[in-house]
Amino acid sequence: MAHADTTHAPPAHPPAHEEETTTGINHRKLLMWVFLGSDCLFFGSLIATYMVYRGQSIVGPYPRDIIDVPITTVSTFVLLMSSFAMVMGVAAARNGNQKRLIQWLWLTIVLGSIFIGFQVYEFNLFRVEGLRYETNLFSSTFFTLTGFHGAHVTLGIFWLICLAIVAARNPAGRPSHLDVDIAGLYWHFVDIVWIVIFTLLYLIGGFDGPPEAGHAAVQGWNWVTGLIS
């Protein structure tokens, strides 16, 4: 590892097997941050697509008919708490407290699953009320964005389950602090994406109705109907 007098001090608790790198940053950790940086672009585009088509659906159900802000506030809270459990798990891994690590990991998994449960409930309710993927611009952009987010969470749950199983089987220092730390980065990232989605799609966009008269979507629609009649 780097010497004590280099500009970049070594990480607090370098695992014994950690190799020296030119940047002083573990390569796997660097990789995770690079991935998270690129995932910002992925979600940025999906969110932008939602915002572009926001308020342009010309058939219902519209967000205001169907979005349930109180319930989603609860599920947002649950996801936030899972982030807290996750960070405690990372702290336990750093202290080498295997038992605590397993407990925090399972708590994170349970909270994440509850969040997914809320989403399954919501998607199903939408379907029953007539909002399918292809119903309108709102539904397709909404389902694409929140669906991909749910897929991220689901992947994270599987990842954490694997870590919990490994931790339960190998009391001798596996998974390493770094293993847990990297999974934690991913998990928190999924949480911050939801922070954005919750604000834009629920708190701000959740009360949208059909486009107002004079809106481009209405003009376009009138133009089409004018041609036919």
């Binding site: 970049h8 940047t23 002083g24 940053i25 950790k29 660097l30 941050w33 690079v34 998270l36 940086g37 690129s38 995932d39 910002c40 672009l41 992925f42 979600f43 940025g44 585009s45 969110i47 932008a48 697509t49 915002m51 572009v52």
Partner: peptide
Amino acid sequence: HELLWQIFVAGLALGLVVALSLV
């Protein structure tokens, strides 16, 4: 390490620029 937040902020900024230009 500062490199890590530079990477993340760069990704975040690009994402924001894409989103903003589209909107």
